[in-house]
Design a protein around this nucleic acid. Structure first.
Length: 361
DNA sequence: AATCCCGTCAACCGCTCGGCG
DNA sequence: ACGCCGAGCGGTTGACGGGAT
């Protein structure tokens, strides 16, 4: 027999709180402290269960609650913390003064999660998604990446991981281009089988893709493709995240403020990553694991395998059939696509043409 | 103007954890 | 060591509001 719920008493009010109830609760706690939550409603003259009172107090009435829109820095910090901690909302909330776990959780589910999905990031794993129709989603990727490229916040580096999704998309496309040329198959014939879900693509890990990018850079640098002498820039790669700078209000989170259990958890995650190249200016992650644990940031060495997004992510608009839909073909979409901020001087169509030409000769 | 749809967020529910006897 | 109890956490629900049709 399970313990009976605390709120099953007959006649206990549920639902939204009235201003009168709020007033009673605040006045009582200010005067007596909350003490035992179970006894509080009776003592305070409230027809509510203790649990409801606690929730109302901690999420809404408690002094110091910061309400209103989340700042960009807060957003980035939440994303980073989530990448390290997962759905540990209460732990995340301890790092964001004035924000409650409930508020952060809601904000994640209603805003940030969608934002990441739009950028091609799996919000669960924080890694690039592979179930996407990359070509159909390319404009979204590029828009997201371009926005990131324009960021001026000191926390920009935190989201390089997200920017890397766009790089990965490019790498996958490059790989597909090579594959197409190698197969001598017309690029528009079967974009799903040859460009997107190709078996060979699934066999590449990040290291392979990075290597391919380097090879392409070399080709371009050597003028092999007859293109401008500009290598494709990797914004950071997975292995070079630089030294992120945090705003003052987000920098100083003494380790002691993190519950021991979470410290251990973070330490465990941290320990699972062998790279040591993310020492930070004044924010040594060895003493501040929540800030920028390298574990959250895949490296070329760790070559994270591409993950499949969860089924819920496979929305119809993302999985639209490029062949049967009335929409223009993906590559048609590329033409005239503004790559500003990413690859201003490289036309993808030009690359394709050049590769095809050199392959045919 | 009416209805529908969708996003947001406060609040609830059920489970887990830790303290204590 | 075990069971009970209170507190806290995370997932889910449902009311509400605004925009679209």
């Amino acid at each position: 027999m399970g313990r009976s719920p605390c709120c099953d008493e007959v006649g206990v009010k549920k639902g939204p709180w009235t201003p009168e109830e709020d007033k009673k609760l605040v006045e009582y706690i200010q005067k007596h402290g909350h003490g035992s939550w179970r006894n509080l409603p009776k003592n305070a003259g409230l027809n509510r269960c203790g649990k409801s009172c606690r929730l109302r107090w901690t999420n809404y009435l408690r002094p110091g609650i910061k309400r209103g829109k989340f700042s960009e820095d807060e957003e980035r910090f939440i994303i980073h913390l989530h990448s390290v901690l997962g759905n540990k909302w209460s732990t995340i909330a301890t790092q964001l003064p004035g924000r409650t776990d409930n508020e952060i959780k809601n904000y994640w589910n209603t805003h940030l999660r969608k934002k990441l999905l739009l950028m091609g990031i799996d919000p669960v794993t924080h890694r690039p998604r592979t179930d996407l129709d990359l070509l159909a989603s390319l404009p979204n990727f590029l828009a997201a990446a371009k926005n990131l490229g324009n960021l001026t916040s000191p926390l920009d580096n935190v989201l390089r991981l997200q920017a890397d999704a766009a790089n990965l998309a490019r790498l996958q496309i490059l790989q597909s281009l090579f594959q197409l040329v190698g197969n001598n198959s017309p690029p528009y014939m079967d974009s799903r089988s040859s460009l997107l879900g190709s078996a060979s693509l699934q066999n590449y890990n990040l290291g392979d893709l990075l290597q391919m990018n380097r090879q392409l850079e070399g080709l371009i640098m050597n003028g092999f493709l007859g293109l401008p002498q500009n290598p494709i820039q990797m914004t950071s790669g997975f292995s070079d995240l630089g030294n992120p700078q945090l705003p003052n209000n987000l920098q100083a989170y003494p380790e002691s403020s993190v519950p021991l259990k979470e410290q251990e958890m973070v330490a465990q995650i941290h320990g699972s990553c062998s790279t040591t190249e993310h020492a930070m200016d004044g924010n040594d992650e060895s003493t501040n694991p929540l800030l920028f644990s390298s574990s959250a940031i895949p490296t070329a060495d760790s070559t994270p395998s591409l993950v499949s997004a969860s089924p819920e992510n496979a929305s119809t608009d993302q999985m639209q059939d490029p062949i049967n839909s009335n929409a223009s073909t993906p590559l048609e979409d590329w033409e005239g696509l503004d790559l500003g901020g990413l690859d201003n001087d490289i036309s993808w169509k030009n690359i394709l043409d050049q590769i095809s030409g050199s392959n045919a000769s």
